[in-house]
Write a protein that binds this DNA or RNA. Structure first.
Length: 507
RNA sequence: GUCCCCAUCGUCUAGACGGCCUAGGACACCACCCUUUCAAGGUGGCGACACGGGUUCGAAUCCCGUUGGGGACGCCA
């Protein structure tokens, strides 16, 4: 559904007649609602820094942002925040794009790279300098470090002390400098956050942040402001960890005469230990989930329910999410990642998806095991039908399908010990005869043979089916035995019974 | 440490106006049923409003405090 590239619904929110959907226009522009013309389109963005793969937290932020745009019929833009030349890599960009594609979070514009916009940032920095809203700071790193250490020792919040704020001229003609934003000293900044509600910060708590490094490159807080404005972003949806940056960015916008966008800070995802979710909690990379056999729709569904809900509903198709999602319904509290529930959803989607949909996904995992289902063996759709009710992941499904496509090299030890014993010889022999004589090789007839042998020998069905199962599959678990044999084919079935008989004789 | 934020079952959550909540659903867990293995499915069970004060006829829902947790405090983003 999601990854197969089907069309996604694009619906506009429909406010009651004559009223505005208060999320559908940018507060920066005069509200054209209520009254006449169409509201300004919602524009959201996802702005990762390419310093790693796309992880779970980022993926959910992207999802919320994407859903918000889709729900309101707006645009979703992708921006790569690669101003940190040291840590940004092209591989990371690719990994992020790959992750988004796999999840089906397609973007309408971008990716835009900040490194290609340095001229623009320089221009804005100069503008800030010219208007007196920024100044050059010549403090050495050593002084800054000392300042910080002292403040910490005094149990104060470490921050720049404004040393260069009123400097008349550089200490030396060619002294290196950074550019700092001249943050207001008084007053408060109020953020009306779509999920957090009203949050206020005292300007006295904020210091003069660096907007340009000594090499002239711009820093994050400056570039976001410029880009969000230039790209017409109406709603900034991002992680909670950015809430504290918001007042600074709003101050910069004010200095530039810009109206800030609407903000929505979504809560973090924590690991089972209550700490911020990270690598040491296991899989964090979206692509790792693919490799572990998860369906993208299961991950998406799991992610959307982390911090958002719609009554008691647990399962949402992407279209339903788009229809029902409202950023204002997102929870304020952080939530803990629960692998069990993700697994359950994955199983649910495997169980309920049409086999045709699973085909490509299973094919991928079979391929990783060195199997090409198109090269022979049972029909993959039939295999999926037999396995989809008993697989929690696609990896599991691929492993369970293995014996249908290639011979196993040894029996499961415990299973062989229990079922491939002399006591089973009679049953296996009779099964072989009966099966070999079957006019049609299909489940119902096979079932008849198995039941028949059990009756003749006055054995419970399990006593007959289980040795047969171990004989043909190598282990104690497979789909119903008749279905299993049908999939395996007569030739292989008979061969494997012979092999089992030989094995018993040899033990 | 300072600032900001958060707080319902182990986990994700439901909970518009405070009464419909002896707090609902889902995952996990336990038991039973079904059964040809493994699953799936069915039935039932376990299990929470962090604490303390208010406000009110009445509070999970409002206010204050405490405690606990998270985030931010970089020439990272």
């Amino acid at each position: 559904m999601l990854a197969s590239g089907g069309s996604t619904v694009r619906r506009r929110c429909r406010p009651a007649a004559g009223t505005a959907c208060d999320l559908c226009y940018n507060r920066a522009s005069p509200p054209c609602f209520p009254g006449n013309s169409a509201p300004m389109t919602v524009r959201t963005r996802f702005a990762p820094s390419p310093t790693g793969y796309l992880h779970i937290g980022g993926a959910r932020t992207a999802l919320f942002s994407w859903l918000h745009a889709r729900h309101h019929g707006g645009a979703f833009v992708l921006r790569i925040e690669d101003t940190d030349l040291e840590r940004s890599t092209a591989e990371s960009v690719n990994a992020i794009l790959e992750g988004m594609t796999w999840l089906g979070l397609e973007y309408d514009e971008g990716p835009f790279y900040q490194t290609r916009r340095f001229d623009r940032y320089r221009e804005v920095i100069q503008q800030l300098l010219d208007s007196g809203h920024a100044y050059r700071c010549y403090c050495s790193r050593e002084r800054l470090e000392r300042l910080r250490a002292d403040q910490l020792a005094r149990k104060e919040k470490p921050r720049y002390d404004g040393h260069c704020r009123h400097l008349e001229r550089p200490p030396a003609p060619d002294a290196p400098y950074v550019v700092r934003f001249r943050n207001p000293l008084e007053g408060t900044v109020v953020v009306d956050d779509l999920v957090r509600g009203r949050v206020s910060f005292a300007n006295a708590e904020l210091d003069d942040l660096i907007i340009a490094r000594s090499d002239g490159t711009p820093t994050y807080n400056l570039t976001v402001v410029v880009d969000d404005t230039d790209m017409g972003i109406t709603h900034v949806i991002r992680g909670d960890d950015h809430l504290n940056n918001t007042p600074r960015q709003m101050n910069i916008m004010q200095a530039l005469g810009l109206q800030p966008p609407a903000y929505a800070h979504v809560p973090m995802i924590l690991g089972p230990d209550g700490k911020r979710f990270s690598k040491r909690h296991g899989a964090v990379s979206v692509m790792q989930f693919r490799d572990e056999g998860y369906l993208p729709e299961a991950l998406i569904n799991y992610l959307v329910r982390l911090g958002w809900s719609h009554g008691d509903q647990e399962v949402f198709s992407v279209d339903e999410m788009v229809e029902l999602f409202d950023i204002r319904d997102v929870n304020k509290a952080a939530s803990t990642f629960n692998p069990d529930k993700l697994l359950w959803l994955n199983q649910h989607y495997i169980k309920t998806s049409p086999p045709e949909h699973l085909e490509r996904h299973l094919g991928y995992h079979l391929g990783r095991l060195g199997i090409d289902p198109a090269a022979g063996g049972p029909d993959i759709l039939a295999v999926i039908r037999a396995l989809q009710e008993r697989s929690k992941t696609l990896v599991e499904m691929a492993r369970q399908a293995l014996f249908l496509y290639q011979d196993f090299d040894h029996y499961d030890e415990k299973a062989a010990k229990k079922h491939l014993r002399p006591a089973a010889v009679e049953a296996l022999t009779r099964l072989r005869t009966g099966l070999a004589a079957l006019p049609d090789w299909e489940a119902e007839a096979i079932h008849g043979v198995v039941v028949g042998v059990a009756e003749v020998l006055e054995l419970k069905l399990g006593k007959v089916a289980q040795p047969l199962r171990v004989a043909v599959s190598g282990g104690p678990v497979s789909p119903p035995i008749d279905v299993t044999l049908e999939l395996l084919g007569r030739e292989r079935t008979l061969q494997r019974i012979d092999r089992a008989l030989a094995y018993i004789a040899g033990t």
